[in-house]
Every structure is written in C-alpha cells, then in structure tokens.
Design a protein around this nucleic acid. Sequence first.
RNA 1: CGGGGUGUGGCGCAGUCCGGUUAGCGCGCCUGCUUUGGGAGCAGGAGGUCCCGGGUUCGAAUCCCGGCACCCCGACCA
Length: 489
Amino acid sequence: MAKGVTPRSQDYAAWYTDVITRAGLADYGPVKGTMVIKPYGFSLWEHIKASLDGMLRESGHVNAYFPLFIPKSFLAREAEHVEGFAKECAVVTHTRLKATEDGQLIVDPESRLEEEVIVRPTSETVIWSMYKKWIQSYRDLPLLINQWANVVRWEMRTRLFLRTTEFLWQEGHTAHASAAEAEQEARKILDIYRRLAEDFLALPVITGTKSEAEKFAGAEHTYAIEAMMGDRRALQAGTSHNLGQNFARAFQVTFQNEANEEELVYATSWGVSTRLVGALIMAHGDDKGLRLPPRIAPVQVIIVPIYRQERDKTSIQDYLTPLKARFEECGIRFAEDWSDNSPGFKFNEWEMKGVPLRLEVGPRDVENGKVVLVRRDTGEKLFREVGRVADELPRLLDEIQTELFRQAQQFRDQHTYRVTSYDEFKAILNGDGGFIRCGWDGTRETEARIKEETKATIRCIPFDEQPEGLTCIYSGKPARHEVIFAKAY
RNA sequence: CGGGGUGUGGCGCAGUCCGGUUAGCGCGCCUGCUUUGGGAGCAGGAGGUCCCGGGUUCGAAUCCCGGCACCCCGACCA
C-alpha cells in the first residue's frame, strides 16, 4: 500500500475514498453499494449521534422504533411520496429459501407473500398508520417521536457515506394540532441541525427552503442545511419537512380540536444521516487525511511515547500516570500508542485518523518535565510543562474546534459569488466551481434548463434572501427569489 | 439502463499481444536480532481455485465462446 493518500488536487474522488479506507472509517460490503462502518468510523457516528440526540431530548422529543418492513400498499397512499420512492425500493417477495436436489439454494416458490412488503426507504407511511391509532384528541398532540434506524434506497450510483444502499439515520415524525405549530417545529428542527453542523461538526451551513423540484416527495415545504465541500460542491447535510396534512389525509388521521370539530393532523418529518461523516471528511480533510473537530472526535488526544530502551519506556509510563489521571478528571478522550511502530509512522497514522492533538513524550521531556503538543489543524508545535498541560487542554481543544470552523467558513466565503450575468454564472461552474448567489424567476422551467445546461441545481432559497431589485440569471425577468446555485453531491 | 475499464497471495500491480521451467514484484503479515523525536534496517519464513463455466491444445493466467462481479463516467437520489 502506498504511504499516503491520492492528493486532493490530483483526484478528489480518489482522495475521498483513500482517506476513508486508510483512516479505518469504513470498508466496502459484499453487496454493491453497501458499506461496513468500522469501529473508528462508528465511534465517530456515535459521537455525532449523541450530540444530536441530546438536543432532541432537550426539545421534548422521545425515541421509539418502528418496523423495517412496510406493506407495499402503504407507500401508494400518498401520490407524490410513491412517485418519489417507488424506483428505489427493495421488495421482499418470499419468506424462505430451499435446497434443490443438486445442492443449489433457491427461493422457495411456495413461500411467495400474498402482500409483498418493502424495506423502508423512510418511515412516514408506517408511522402514520400507527399515529391513526394513537391520536384522537388535541390532548394527544403534539406527538414528538424520533427514531434512530437504518433505511434502504436502491440507488444506481453509490459512494461511501454520501450515498449507500443502506444507511443509518435518525428520522423524526411529529404530529400537531395546527399548521402554524407544524411550521414552527420544522423550523425549530432545522435550527437544531444548524447547531449540530456548526457547533459540533465545525461545518458552516446555509439554511433555507428547497425549491419545488428539490423538495421531499409528499412535503409542503422542505428546509435544508447546505454545506460546501473541499471541491466546492454542495452537500445537503440535513432536511426538515413541513408535511402539512398530506400524510394525515392519506392515512385518515384526524383529531377533535378544542371546539369539538374533527380536523386532519398537521405533520413534520426530518432527518440527518451517516452522510454527515462524508461531510466532515470533505469539509475538513487534507492531504494528510482526516481532521476531526474535537467535540465529536473519537480520540481527542493521542499520546505517542518515544523511547529507545526498556528503562525509558518504564520511566515514560510512570511520567504519564498522573497526567492521564488529570485527563480523566477533565473528561478528555485520549488514547496511547504503545505499538512497535516507529514514531514517524505513528505521527502519520494518527494524523490520517484526524486526531486533533498529539502529545509526544520522550526521554528528553521526562528529563525536563515537559511534553510536546502538536495541533492537527495548524501543524503547530507547542512545548508545555507536564504539570500544567491538563489544565490548558480543554481550552486548546475549543480553539481547534473554532479554527476548523473558521477555515471552512473562510473557504466557503471565498468560493461564494454574487453574479448578475449567465455568462459569469457558467464561467464559475466551468472553472473552479462554488456557490452562486443570484436571482431566479421562480419557474420550474428556468431551474430545469439551468440544470441541463450547467449541472448546477438550486441548493436552497436562503432565509436571508434579498430578491428585491434582482433579475433572473437565466430569463432576465424580475427575480422572485434570491437563490444559491451549485453542483451538488 | 447506456458508455468505458478491471478481475492474478491481505492490498497495489507485472506477466496475457506472440501458449511452454517451480506464476513474479512492491507493500503488508509471521519469527529473530538491531532500532525508535516525521512512514527503520538486516536475515529467515508463511501465504495463490490466476473471477466462473465450457472449448481448442501434448500443454492455457495467456487463445476461442458464454456467463458473473466490481470500479469509473452519465441519467435518478439523504
């Protein structure tokens, strides 16, 4: 195996998969499009998950679990929804296999299901079939349920973490007594997603509304957080939908309001997935590998001992004992690398894994009462007194967190353009690419034409849009919205 | 579903055109010794249905026919 990864500038896609495999995040599964999330990658996901789960609980949501299998007929209940997902559903048609005389294993034709079931691509339909049973009165509302689950979407083209046939996510499904409350919920969740991205993943995002063409199948409105990756393409990092009464209507979920009138329930759904891991890799990674934000890094500090002889090793171990005790008191996630690999190898290895801080201790440090710290974000070397380093670490980790965010934000801003002519628009997309902020006449036709001609799509209509006085980049008509265009994953 | 490519020890590849020793190289792995402040050195060693199935031939990784799988590029998508 080569020593490093393919440089980003040479082949971004190869760099991305190299980093994932070399850092030990994931591996390809045996079935096309599937992925094994390895312990280090899974630990990263679990930290992301814990961060979000905490925020969801604080805002009154509870976790539950709904079945993987859904009757095929459920999907068809909501017209747009079936349209959106039918093409990518895995379908279970039989319930068993059997061995033939010549030892082959075949699907037992006698086990054919009367009603075929689908593997959930998302759970709106099963969940609303249950909500029908659970909701009668306004007193049953709001219902604020979240589930952490796997879903399957049989995609044509897959990429590790960004789009796999099966992926892990959380999906929230809420029911409300008024349209206004559902709208407020959808927006509240989007803000939680924004905080997850910005405060935990150090990933600056743009919040906004999806165009009709890009919204979720079955939603009234879709809101999203959009982030810029290192190749200046956009990645949708989370979505929140106001479903209006569409699913309540499809599943006949009504409640009696305070005026004793029967009314359809108002709904939202929202989700973020393991795609966030892909976002982290592409937003922060460099040619040495991952760079993880301390708040979600599985290992925040890697201790690398450096020694020649057994007695040095022993003295380093003793030297580290009180320091490690202090780390534990401070709640710092640290690990030690006592493997037989050379120090240089370990440095590269842990940089590949994106550990925010490396702490080196060698005989010279033991003699002088020092340690050496090296920041992954800046490469800076810091020499510190062993007795004081634990007190400083929480602040230093915060600083790294902030710095990663700052770098990503600066990168995004440098590659965000406001343009007024379609020629400029195309020049940017044919060049380095980036986010383009411009006017749009609000028509599906314009959006479709631009996509066809440039591959760029409307990522969102940002909440802070200022369409007044703008003209449409394509048609020249007065702009209905100011939007962000970009090529997207 | 179109277009392109690749299937050979764990990984990356050479060998295939032009059939012929025991299928080779780098990395990794195992053992031992020496090393260790930016991917250590030497010595020894283990590890292969050459994607699968037919065919041609005295002889097939190599030629012929058929299949399968995966990767990349496009249309669809969190």
